[in-house]
Simulated assay, not measured.
Amino acid sequence: MIRVLIADDEALMRTGVRLILENDEEIRIVAEAQDAREAVEACRAHTVDVALLDIRMPGDGITAVAEIARHSARTRAVMLTAFGEEPTVTSALRAGAHGYLLKDTGPRELIDAVRRAAAGEPVLAPQVTRQLVEFRTRSGHGGETAGRRLAELTPAERDVLRLLGTGLSNAEIAARLHLSSGTVKAHISSILTRTGCTNRVQAAVLAHEAGLLD
């Protein structure tokens, strides 16, 4: 069972997301919140696997992500918002968000994203990924620094990171590289340690910033 928190200051949005997710037998909505404080408290009071958080709710969604990352280690925080500007996306991911989705995400895609987030996989809307890449290409932002952070990776780890950056699961990466899932998992653990990333999404963004997917 995947236990989900929905945090949004719009009651209609919370109701719509609940109706979509409750179509999946393995997803259960354990709490709802209308501001950042309520979201953090709900993650402390309940066992929450995935927290879907709006950015612009009272108290600030990014603040809620940072608090959840500090105090609710098992919870995967995923932004679900209408705002996809690069600075906002980057701030959320650096605060500890495990994913970033836009509110025009389809019902089937939303359910799949919740499942993937619960499994610890990165969840980025395609539009968001494209924007991060375009921003890096236009400005060169972070490219040199990101490249230095990848310097200690082995060739095998760089291959895994490149595929992780495209959003593939462990099983899909294993199939592409003809490795076992256990080996891929070990590579990802090493990648996080060597690069200083705290989760797979930050590693995926780092891969984009370093130009590994170009």
Rank of each mutant, 00 (worst) to 15 (best):
M79H: 08
Y100S: 10
L93F: 06
A45N: 15
E144D: 05
A95S: 13
L153C: 12
E85S: 11
A113S: 15
R56A: 15
T63N: 13
E41V: 09
Q202L: 08
T137N: 14
G59S: 10
L5I: 09
Q34F: 04
T193P: 00
D35Y: 04
G167A: 07
R28P: 00
L150C: 10
S180H: 14
D60G: 14
L213G: 01
T154L: 14
E67I: 01
R158C: 06
T166C: 05
L161M: 12
L168H: 14
A146H: 02
A156W: 03
I29P: 08
S139A: 05
V184N: 04
M57Q: 11
A117F: 01
G211S: 04
L80E: 02
D112V: 01
I62C: 11
H208E: 06
G96Q: 07
A207E: 05
A171F: 04
V201D: 06
A97R: 09
D104Y: 02
F83L: 14
P155Y: 07
I111N: 06
L206K: 03
F83A: 10
F135Y: 12
L12D: 11
I191W: 08
E109F: 00
E209V: 00
E121V: 04
A51S: 10
P122Q: 14
H178V: 14
D159K: 14
T183H: 13
S72Q: 08
D54R: 01
A45P: 02
M57W: 07
T183W: 03
G84D: 15
S181G: 11
D214K: 11
P155E: 04
V78F: 10
R194V: 03
E144Y: 05
A117T: 01
S189G: 15
I173R: 06
S169Y: 02
V89S: 05
A73Y: 05
